[in-house]
Design a binder for these strands. Structure first.
Length: 278
DNA sequence: TGCCAGGCTTCAC
DNA sequence: GTGAAGCATGGC
């Protein structure tokens, strides 16, 4: 157990911000004390399992050791970044955005695994978030490495090597729909070296976007999601149906992201989370 | 029941 | 290069 104070972090908001799909409140028996039941989230990432309880606005208890926190989760939650700087950069005359930031004050851009984000956001297209979660969970339970959690077992995200071994027919049994061929091709390209994830993670933002757009099944929206949520290119501004709705309803069809150059993706997350609340 | 979902590829033109 | 059709499936 490790206790720490963290600013600008709200776990409920992160869960519903649409950037992560294996970050869920109280889904299984807890490691953390029962007294935190109403405030405990369970996270599976990087083949690790974490429970994190928000016991106050800025006070958190994590199920990991301090060492694991420092080596994995501190980065995962992007805790070296001061989000108050982004908030201070908001146009105060922009009522929608001001309300959005006030509503989603505890959102951070998680630094998630590139392979997992590629698969997750390819699957995300034309699915709602509960359906994405169910689909990914099905893949994890079938093909992920087991992780022992007390008496319980959870499953890591399946590797490219594991998915590579599957036939299209096997993939089809997990509600991938027409995306099965995208995932199949992606696993093949990664395992055979046609797509190098290490190199991809080292590219400049604009080059990474180009490389992502060359991947079968990835268009501009998914490329921006992967850039933002895995590569931490926080200028990336994914436009999905919700963001487009905001742009049409609140900004007369045009939102100038250059106003927020360098952190437009953070702004996008506040907008997305707020718009989905009503 | 019908519409919609963190869109993309393909194919006319 | 632009625009429209077609797409699998589950949630609401």
């Amino acid at each position: 157990m490790y206790k720490i104070r963290i600013k600008d972090l709200n776990l409920a908001q992160i869960e519903d911000s649409g950037q992560c799909f294996r970050f869920i409140k109280n889904e299984r028996p807890r490691l953390n004390p029962a007294e935190y039941a109403d405030s405990t989230w369970q996270v599976i990432a990087f083949e690790k399992y974490l429970e994190i309880s928000q016991i106050d606005k800025e006070e958190f208890i994590l199920s990991c050791s301090q060492e694991e926190f420092e080596t994995i989760w501190k980065s995962y939650f992007d805790l070296d970044t001061d989000y108050s700087v982004f908030k201070a950069g908001i146009d105060t005359k922009d009522v929608f955005l001001t309300n959005a930031v006030e509503y989603g004050w505890g959102i951070r851009i998680l630094r998630q695994d590139l392979w997992e984000m590629l698969v997750s956001f390819i699957i995300s297209q034309r699915k709602n978030i509960p359906a994405i979660r169910a689909c990914l969970e099905s893949l994890c339970q079938a093909y992920g490495q087991p992780i022992k959690v007390g008496e319980d077992i959870v499953y890591a995200f399946p590797s490219a090597e594991r998915l590579y071994t599957l036939s299209l027919e096997e993939l089809k049994t997990h509600s991938l729909g027409y995306r099965d061929k995208y995932i199949s091709r992606l696993a093949k390209d990664v395992v055979e070296g046609n797509i190098n994830l290490v190199e991809l993670s080292q590219l400049k933002p604009e080059d990474a976007t180009k490389a992502l757009l060359n991947i079968y099944g990835i268009g501009i929206k998914v490329a921006n999601c992967v850039s933002l949520f895995a590569l931490h290119h926080i200028d990336a501004f994914p436009i999905d149906v919700w963001i487009q709705r905001i742009i049409d309803e609140e900004y007369e069809g045009h939102f100038d992201t250059s106003r927020y150059a360098g952190f437009a993706g953070v702004i996008q997350q506040y907008m997305f989370y707020y718009r989905r609340s009503y």
